[in-house]
């Protein structure tokens, strides 16, 4: 079996650097930054590490229920598909800067895509 992207990038330690890159992009992007205005940055970074670990195929304890609960307030504030698209775009940029090739970024985007309905509170929880 081939190595996961998570392992290729360098595992947990590399995820910390990835979170800094990714989180910085999210906070700097006016299309989505408002959703991060009143959050505890350390907790948010830990959550993003979990998310990046999951979408790159690393060890995770992802549940759709957690994702729904975590985003319910944001959905009420107007979080929609367009915002999710921005996040997936920024995720791709982050991985590209870390040297992940385009084909693998597509795989990651597909995994991130699988979370969309949970984030937006649609359908049944996974």
């Amino acid at each position: 079996m081939s190595k996961s992207i998570y392992e290729q990038i360098g595992g947990s330690a590399a995820m910390d650097a990835a979170v800094d890159l990714f989180y910085r992009k999210v906070l700097s992007d006016e299309r989505v930054s408002e959703f991060f205005d009143d959050v505890d940055m350390e907790r948010q970074a830990a959550k993003q590490k979990g998310f990046l670990t999951m979408v790159t195929g690393g060890p995770n304890n992802y549940t759709g229920r957690n994702m729904r609960d975590a985003h319910a307030k944001l959905v009420a504030q107007g979080l929609n598909d367009g915002h999710v698209d921005v996040i997936i775009e920024l995720l791709g940029e982050t991985l590209s800067e870390l040297g992940v090739d385009a084909e693998q970024i597509k795989q990651v985007a597909a995994l991130a895509e699988s979370v969309r309905d949970d984030v937006l509170g649609r359908g049944a929880a996974n």
């Binding site: 910085r24 906070l27 940055m41 350390e42």
Partner: peptide
Amino acid sequence: SGLRRRLFIAGVPLR
């Protein structure tokens, strides 16, 4: 909170 966020965006690692 404001300065932490702006320093981070400016490139200082969160940790």
